[in-house]
Simulated scan of single mutants.
Amino acid sequence: MANEATSPDSIAVAERVRELMSRHGIGKRQQTTELCRILDLSFSQGHRKLRGNSPWTLSQIKKVAEAFGEPAAQLFGAQSLDPGMVGAIAQEAVFSIGAIDLACTAWVGAALEPGSRPEFIAFSKLGQWRVVRHDGALYQNGFEVHKIEIYPRRAETDKPLIAVVDDDASSADNLRDYLEQSGFGAAAFYGLTAFTEALQTQVFDGVVIDWLFGTQTSALAIRAVRGSENPDAPIFVLTGELLTGKASESEISEVIRNFDVACYEKPARMAILVADLSKRLNRI
């Protein structure tokens, strides 16, 4: 089981990761892409993690440090906070309290000296660090424990986040629900203004957007996606008005050419749309 950092820790780790990448010549606009490559994350998840809005596991911290050939301890910054932590190494562990096992991070120090009676000790069993309260029993290969951090169990939201934009709330909700059932995260927006405002603070891995919103088209919103922090997000335009003449075939063709979007007739065949989306996001 992997532990998760609390929010203040997540922010601190994110700041140190950004500083590390900058030292290694990774520009700000490339840092999210690089983190996604190292940790195999979706763009939206990497974006949240680099801003401290998503928890970091110990294994992720170690993986980033190893990718740049630097010690993981500097990303934790824990040893600098407490002089007594010098020499201790953060380890993913299981903290046993009676019959209950809790995922934790344990700062494991030196091997126990004969006669020592620390409150907690750590030992390795079958490749897993375990932490227990010292009960006076003799433990072979026992180590001092300087610090234990236990975090609430929360799901790591590592699903690609898809924006569904349609002024027909029922259609938007149905597609959002289908995407969620298919293993994606999804957010529904019922107008162009709500969506473009969300683009200022959120990053999406993909966008499914209707073409007509009253007398407006979604062309400017599509342009905004291509100018966002994730400009390569796949975009799918939906329209049911080509045959009626309300939607201009030439305007849609121009958007397809200029902004690399796909176009589907409404009502969209959801299974085909999701299969195409999965392929573009390398999920199949």
Rank of each mutant, 00 (worst) to 15 (best):
A67I: 04
A67S: 14
Q60G: 09
V132G: 00
G84I: 00
V94H: 03
H146T: 03
E70V: 15
L75D: 03
S124K: 15
L75Q: 05
I121F: 07
I100R: 13
I150T: 14
G87I: 07
L58P: 05
V145I: 12
T57M: 05
L126S: 14
S80T: 11
Q60V: 11
G136S: 08
V132R: 12
R130N: 14
V94A: 10
K63Q: 15
L75H: 06
P83H: 02
F95C: 08
G98E: 02
I89P: 02
I121H: 02
F120K: 06
S80M: 08
Y151P: 00
F95H: 12
A103M: 01
I148P: 00
Q60P: 05
F120C: 08
M85S: 09
E70Q: 14
A99V: 12
V86R: 13
E149T: 14
D135T: 13
R130L: 13
A65R: 03
D82G: 00
A78F: 10
L112P: 08
F95M: 10
E70K: 13
L58G: 08
Q79A: 12
A65D: 04
V145W: 05
Q91W: 03
F123L: 14
D135W: 09
F95R: 10
E144I: 00
A106W: 04
Y139P: 06
S96C: 12
A111D: 11
R117D: 12
